[in-house]
Simulated scan of single mutants.
Amino acid sequence: MDADCIAGNIAEVSERVRAAAEKVGRDPATVRLLAVSKTHPVEVVRAAAAAGQRDFGENYLQEAIDKIAATADLDLSWHFIGPIQSNKTRAIAGHFHWVHSVDRLKIARRLSEQRPPELPPLKVCLQVNISGEASKAGVEPDELPALAAAVAALPRLELHGLMAIPAPAEDEARQREPLARLAALFASLRETLPGLDTLSMGMSADLEAAIAEGATLVRIGTAIFGPRGT
């Protein structure tokens, strides 16, 4: 995909974000666009950056580290959004600005302990298994308050909010149901953790539903970069 096409796609997604936000009376500036560049080559990251995109999401650690190194001349913010294995925490803690997929205290502690002291605290979101799918990672909703309190107390992390990947649904009404549950959990947590500011939900197929339910960050891959690479 060439640079002009990627720039056009970013413009189209930005227009979808604007329209969805204004439809529910929100300021479009309150919704951040995360370009999910996993499986795509570094050239598309550079093309998106040239179009003004600054936040990029990756699932696969070594692929991401290679891209981060290859774009070190650019002022980009890198978000790890995939499942986290214990043996990968040191590299994640050392290379990323954000981690969206923390769902266990053990992982959070390792990220905190392994965050290099010369870097600012690592910004994290807690992943919630909002649809109750056995195949999905994420903390169970009833276990979320205890995990959030424990993670918020870790010295080298900054807890910013919640993330979820709901089960797919075809129509917007059904898409909104799990997103509304996540938004309610977020609102409840903010009663004791008022500094939380990030609700990471919504992808290419359901960004309108996510914005209607209060998403502050949408994770968009296909609508920007096309189908995943192999």
Score class of each variant (00 low, 15 high):
residue 28 P to E: 14
residue 41 P to K: 01
residue 102 V to Y: 00
residue 217 L to W: 05
residue 140 E to R: 10
residue 103 D to M: 05
residue 41 P to I: 02
residue 7 A to D: 11
residue 167 A to E: 06
residue 58 E to V: 10
residue 7 A to Y: 05
residue 70 A to T: 11
residue 89 T to G: 13
residue 76 L to W: 07
residue 29 A to K: 12
residue 138 G to V: 02
residue 11 A to P: 01
residue 165 I to N: 07
residue 26 R to K: 15
residue 230 T to G: 04
residue 128 V to D: 03
residue 137 A to G: 09
residue 205 A to R: 15
residue 157 L to Q: 07
residue 139 V to M: 05
residue 18 R to H: 14
residue 162 L to N: 03
residue 158 E to T: 15
residue 201 M to H: 11
residue 22 E to F: 09
residue 20 A to H: 08
residue 129 N to K: 03
residue 36 V to S: 02
residue 69 A to W: 06
residue 183 A to H: 00
residue 51 A to N: 10
residue 187 A to W: 07
residue 167 A to P: 00
residue 117 P to D: 13
residue 190 R to M: 08
residue 174 R to T: 08
residue 16 R to G: 11
residue 23 K to I: 13
residue 39 T to R: 04
residue 75 D to N: 10
residue 206 D to C: 06
residue 70 A to M: 09
residue 167 A to G: 04
residue 119 L to R: 15
residue 24 V to D: 13
residue 80 F to E: 04
residue 52 G to T: 13
residue 51 A to G: 12
residue 27 D to S: 15
residue 17 V to P: 12
residue 120 P to Q: 10
residue 54 R to C: 08
residue 125 C to Y: 13
residue 91 A to G: 02
residue 214 G to C: 06
residue 72 A to T: 06
residue 126 L to I: 15
residue 182 L to G: 00
residue 76 L to F: 07
residue 199 L to E: 04
residue 67 K to Y: 12
residue 67 K to C: 09
residue 128 V to N: 05
residue 224 I to V: 15
residue 81 I to Y: 02
residue 194 P to H: 01
residue 167 A to M: 05
residue 61 L to Q: 00
residue 125 C to G: 13
residue 189 L to T: 13
residue 178 P to S: 00
residue 91 A to Q: 14
residue 69 A to S: 14
residue 5 C to M: 02
residue 88 K to Y: 10
residue 204 S to A: 09
residue 58 E to P: 10
residue 42 V to R: 03
residue 180 A to W: 00
residue 168 P to Y: 09
residue 41 P to W: 02
residue 221 G to S: 05
residue 175 Q to D: 05
residue 91 A to T: 12
residue 191 E to H: 03
residue 155 P to S: 05
residue 150 A to C: 12
residue 210 A to I: 11
residue 198 T to E: 15
residue 124 V to D: 09
residue 19 A to P: 10
residue 228 R to S: 01
residue 34 L to R: 01
residue 229 G to L: 02
